[in-house]
Simulated assay, not measured.
Amino acid sequence: MKLNELGIRFSNEKLLTQALTHSSYANQQQGMESNEKLEFLGDAILQLCITRALYERGGSRSEGELTKIRALIVCEPSLYEVAQKWNLGRYILLSHGEEATGGRKRQSLLADAVEAVIAALYLDQGTEAADRLILEHFEDIIRRALNHEIVLDYKTRLQELLQESGEVNIHYDLVKFEGPAHRRKFFSRVAVDEITMGRGEGMSKKESEQEAARDALSKLALHREETL
């Protein structure tokens, strides 16, 4: 059995089947296991492979910079991009209900399946095979992340969250910038009604604003946990 888009044949076909089995389908089949545990393993394999690639290619970038770049690569939008390359929506096993509500195109579902396929290949053929798969199909994403061509849209998510209870005045301010023109770093803050919600830095004004929004989202999530 193989995914045509990958051209990889699995020795243990059950592993690939499990990687493509959503919990909605597994719950309707007696004795069938979903891809959730494989997803858990695949995330760790992907993190390690990408971390090593960035360590080798990161040049003089600091640990903090590399951590942020890794977050742009090992994230749902990037995994979804790979899922589309693999045409995973065609292969995933879903319940009728999940399929009827658009499961074959759902970003989170397909992103999870990519991690599960990575884990399945690791268990079937070992670390080298899994690393080859990752580096081949994430290569363009790695390149774009290193070149600061990928920015996650934390600003939109923050706006949606803050406006759930009505309109609020959200604005971003450039606090300062430093460094030479070819290596300039920008520092921004996001505020609501003049109250600072988050701060961020980046190699562009746009990136620093996204980091400020991410900081605000993290603080809001922590606040919600503390009040539960």
Rank of each mutant, 00 (worst) to 15 (best):
I118S: 12
S204F: 13
R132W: 12
Y55S: 06
K155S: 02
L15M: 04
G126D: 11
L15D: 00
D131P: 10
F40S: 04
E13V: 01
L41Q: 05
M1D: 04
E99Q: 09
L88R: 13
R90P: 15
E201I: 02
Y154H: 07
A111W: 10
G97Y: 15
A83L: 10
A26R: 12
L20A: 08
E164P: 00
D131R: 06
E81H: 03
A216C: 06
V114H: 12
H223D: 03
L88K: 01
S108F: 15
V168A: 09
V192G: 08
D131G: 09
I170H: 13
A120E: 02
G97H: 15
G103M: 03
R184G: 08
Y122I: 01
E160S: 06
H182L: 07
D153K: 07
F10P: 08
K37I: 06
V114L: 03
L48Y: 15
I69H: 01
L66M: 10
L93M: 04
N87H: 15
Q84H: 11
W86Q: 04
E56C: 04
V175A: 05
L88Y: 05
Q159D: 09
Y80L: 00
F187Q: 13
R184W: 10
A120W: 04
E65R: 00
A191G: 10
Y25I: 00
A44S: 14
H22T: 08
K105G: 07
L41D: 07
S23Q: 02
P77N: 00
A119I: 00
H148K: 03
D173V: 11
K85Y: 15
E207Y: 11
V192E: 14
D131E: 12
E225P: 00
A221N: 14
E76D: 06
K185P: 00
G179D: 05
S60L: 11
V82H: 04
Y25V: 03
G166I: 01
I8N: 01
N147S: 13
V151M: 02
F10N: 01
V192Q: 13
H171E: 05
G198R: 08
G97W: 15
C75G: 05
Y25D: 06
S78T: 10
L217Y: 06
E201W: 15
L3N: 01
N4V: 13
T127E: 04
G102C: 02
N169F: 14
Y154W: 11
E13A: 07
L38W: 09
E209Y: 13
E160H: 08
E33S: 10
E36V: 06
L174G: 12
S208H: 11
N4H: 14
L217F: 02
L161Y: 15
I195H: 15
R189V: 12
Q47P: 00
D131K: 01
A53Q: 06
N35G: 06
A213I: 04
M203R: 14
A120G: 04
T21H: 13
I118D: 11
E225F: 14
L79R: 10
S218I: 12
I118P: 01
D153E: 05
R189L: 00
R214L: 03
T227M: 14
E209G: 04
S62G: 06
K2W: 15
G198C: 09
E136A: 12
N4E: 14
R224G: 09
E76L: 09
S24M: 05
E76G: 13
I92N: 06
R224Q: 13
A71E: 15
D43Q: 13
G166M: 01
Q30A: 12
A212H: 11
K85N: 10
L123V: 01
L174S: 07
